[in-house]
Simulated scan of single mutants.
Amino acid sequence: MKSLKLLFFAGLISLTACGPAEDDGKLVIGVTMLSMQNEFIVNVADEMQKKADEMGVKLITVDAERSALKQMEQVESFIAQGVDAIILNPCEVEASSPAVSRAIAAGIPIVNVNSETTAKPTAFVGSNDVESARIAMNYLAEKMNGKGNLVMIHGFMGQAAQIQREEGAKEILKAHPDMKLLAEQTGEWDRSKSMDLMQNWIQSYGDQIDAVFAHNDEMGMGAVKALQNAGMKDQVLVVSIDAIQDALQAVKKGELDATVFQNAREQGVAAVNTAVKLAQGQKTEEKILIPFQLVIKGNVDNFLK
């Protein structure tokens, strides 16, 4: 007996006895996203949908709600439906790896987008998160003249971007021994949690804090708000990653000192293009990397919509 979730999906895409791959003659791609509460992830999903519509491909997009277990169940459902390909935006490096392995074992090509897993997918589309942190931290090192104290707000622990952005940040810190890391903790990619975390650090360290590196803009904006509330923003640098619209506006206003642009459009488009090629039995590059770019007040207008 099929699960309710499988029945829901079956109804959603109007499966025939031939299976979804032959429904309306369209390719069907199952997509599971880390969290549709995260603006950047939503942007990637939107770009995937636009590209799929343009190509006449049917996407079934579901939200893993940050749960690797739920993501595994979603991939198993896609396998049961016989989709032509799967796009996975992994919740975690390790815990989402079994989902990749199951798809490969079932003979269904799987493309990881934006984030990596230990298990090797058919292809990966994203950006080098180590490099994003290098860009952010090099900017801080320049503005701080290579000395001072900073705090680091991590993303969701165990997720590839968190691991790699920490790696890149600590690489730059090692190269600048007079830059000291006062504290580091996860803000779970969340604005309000990061605001609370920053408030706690302000109480603990006060004017010892010279800079904040947040692993994404949601958390960077939370830190900015806490610093503004404490009347400290003018003396503390804040840099984050993704270049979501809120962050770009904050850079333009001088509230956020810099962000690092991650190209949601190119990631989404390349993920769908790659999945379609693989579903059609074509060869593709195993890794497609899209570069990051530093955004400051002087060039922010190039990135604003």
Results as ranks from 00 to 15, higher is better:
141 A>I: 03
144 M>C: 08
139 Y>R: 03
154 H>C: 04
148 G>I: 07
143 K>A: 05
151 V>W: 03
139 Y>H: 13
145 N>V: 01
154 H>N: 13
144 M>V: 02
130 V>N: 13
129 D>I: 03
127 S>Q: 13
140 L>M: 10
133 A>S: 14
160 A>F: 00
133 A>V: 03
150 L>R: 06
131 E>Q: 15
138 N>C: 01
146 G>Y: 02
141 A>W: 07
149 N>D: 09
138 N>D: 15
160 A>R: 01
140 L>S: 05
139 Y>N: 04
155 G>T: 08
147 K>G: 07
134 R>D: 11
147 K>M: 07
130 V>I: 15
135 I>N: 13
133 A>F: 11
149 N>T: 03
129 D>G: 05
152 M>G: 00
146 G>S: 07
154 H>E: 13
141 A>L: 06
159 Q>M: 10
159 Q>H: 11
131 E>V: 14
133 A>G: 12
137 M>N: 06
135 I>W: 12
135 I>A: 12
136 A>N: 07
147 K>P: 00
129 D>C: 00
140 L>T: 01
127 S>E: 12
129 D>Q: 13
128 N>C: 12
142 E>D: 14
136 A>E: 11
155 G>S: 03
134 R>E: 14
155 G>R: 01
148 G>N: 08
151 V>T: 07
141 A>Q: 10
137 M>L: 15
160 A>L: 00
133 A>C: 09
133 A>T: 08
154 H>Y: 08
145 N>K: 14
133 A>W: 10
156 F>V: 15
141 A>V: 10
132 S>D: 13
143 K>P: 01
155 G>Q: 02
142 E>H: 01
134 R>N: 15
158 G>C: 06
145 N>R: 10
138 N>K: 14
137 M>P: 00
160 A>T: 10
145 N>G: 15
130 V>C: 06
160 A>M: 02
157 M>F: 07
151 V>L: 03
156 F>L: 15
137 M>R: 06
140 L>R: 01
130 V>H: 15
144 M>G: 08
139 Y>E: 12
155 G>I: 08
129 D>E: 14
138 N>M: 06
144 M>F: 07
154 H>L: 12
141 A>H: 08
149 N>A: 06
140 L>C: 05
159 Q>N: 13
152 M>P: 01
142 E>P: 00
143 K>F: 02
155 G>P: 05
149 N>F: 02
152 M>D: 01
134 R>W: 11
159 Q>R: 04
136 A>F: 05
128 N>R: 13
129 D>W: 12
139 Y>F: 15
156 F>D: 13
151 V>R: 09
142 E>L: 04
154 H>D: 10
147 K>A: 14
154 H>A: 10
